[in-house]
Design a protein around this nucleic acid. Sequence first.
DNA 1: CTAGGGTTAG
Length: 578
Amino acid sequence: MNAWIPSPMAAATRYAIKTLDLLFVDSDLTRRRNSRSHCAAAATNTCEDLICRLSSIAKRFHGPLSPPPPPPPGAKPRRRHPYHYHALMKAFSRAGHSDEVLRLLRDMKESGCKPNLLCYTTAIHSLVISNRPSEAQSLFQEMLMNGVHPDTTSFSILAKSLAFHLKHFDSALTFLGCMVKNGSEPDVVTYSSLIAGFCRAGLVDDALKMFNIMHELKCTPNAHTFTPIIQFYCSRGEIRMARRILDYMHYYSIVPDAVAYNVFVQALCQARQFEQVETLLRESDENGWMPDSVTYNTYINGLCKAGRVDDAFDQLEVMLGKGFHPTAVTLSILLNLLCSESKVVQVKSLLENSVLLGWFIGTDGYNTVMSRLCESGQWVAALKLFADMVKKGVNPDTHTFNIVINSLCKGGKLGVAKCMVRSQGFIADSVTYNILYCAFQTAGRIDEFHDLFSNMGLLQDSVTYNIVIDYLCRKGRYSEAIYFLRTLEDSFSPDVVAHLTFGLVKGGKLGEVLSLFRDMLDRGLVIDHCIFNSLIKAFCLKGSCGGMGIYKLYVVLDVMLGIRLILRQLLCEKCNKH
DNA sequence: CTAGGGTTAG
């Protein structure tokens, strides 16, 4: 489909195939395979073919192209216009190739065509959506240096990066102030992005505050503004609140669209209220929305998860009957279903013959099946499937490589995994980092991990921090775990605090838990529901919810709820009155 | 002529 776009991982793929080939040659596995020698030989040959094919694709794109047709006699050479660059940059940005976007921007400058606001904006946006926030910020700076004045759109993109991706809400709000100073008023998109950021971080009160500010400034909200709020309530299973918001929207003539309803359908599916979903679909016409492929995917997945496989296939037929093509997500859902039913043989034949069926199973489809294989311990099969997909011309992505690396780690091939990550052109993400960190930790080779990857700029996230905290708690190194939490930039992120709480309670370190919470309350931080859940779960696991143990839990809960603080406040007020 | 926001699987 996108054969002319090089896979960003082409070099890493070549390396991976070569390495895995060697691995199989060396292993017992191949000895077994060699008993059917012709098969093994064929496989080796195809791998070599593959490398040739991949490099020829790469050459076709990067190497000398066939000469362009000569211009008609007398024609003036056409000047390059930023518009032409912009169109290309937009296409690459949509395909997730931020490096190509940057290359075009460089090209532009080198050929003396000054990038305009739109080109910069698109490039910055592509960096933001590829999770490269610091580069996005420096490009923004560069734009300012070159005298290109930002507008509401470009400011909004950076504000979104701060709030939605980095969760730096203070910076985002300060940035909003900067916008106003620079004469760009935030608009409904800017505010909606911030609201989405707040909601995703579970800070619904701040989201609602933002919503009130919008209202005061007479900025009319739309479906984009409300969807994250609906999503917040749905994610907590508060279906009635979600429905109230949908009603509220109708009341104020802001008609919820398919996206807003899809969020709701997802919540209904999770609560297994399938008859409600049916009603919603039946009444969609009169409510002014059209179910789309996401609606059906969500519904089908919900039915699969609930074990109602026949109903799921019925819905698939409804979906196809309405003229929707199965998307990559539809196929993933179905492949997951088949894998969970242990129909791996059928799945493989489906992958082999998908084109004959008229369904193109691409990267996501292979990723799904490889994941399931790896999870169920069939890591060799997962690696073989990787070779198959490349053979079929399906480009692997970072997720594919993460599964391959995970499979190698599970098979104890840490050295091979290590080389693959360090191979040329490999694009790692925080998941890659976490897989490797876990594997090296389990193998007791964590020092080696630090030596190898400390200067690679691999991305860490809260999952990484949780892995570290788990490890320290397991080893009984509680004070180090607490110290580690405090050294983090976002030192009291609820997710990580919840993890540490769990470890501390399990280790009976209640004093440490209490002082941690007191510290948080003193700083005015919120102890959110996931911390409560984690704490109560840990107490239950320890069997401390009966007898005297329950009082310990009460004491901790009191502190968490800040009851003492409230009491102290009340007492002070009384004292002042008298 | 051109740009930015909210949803589905792993």
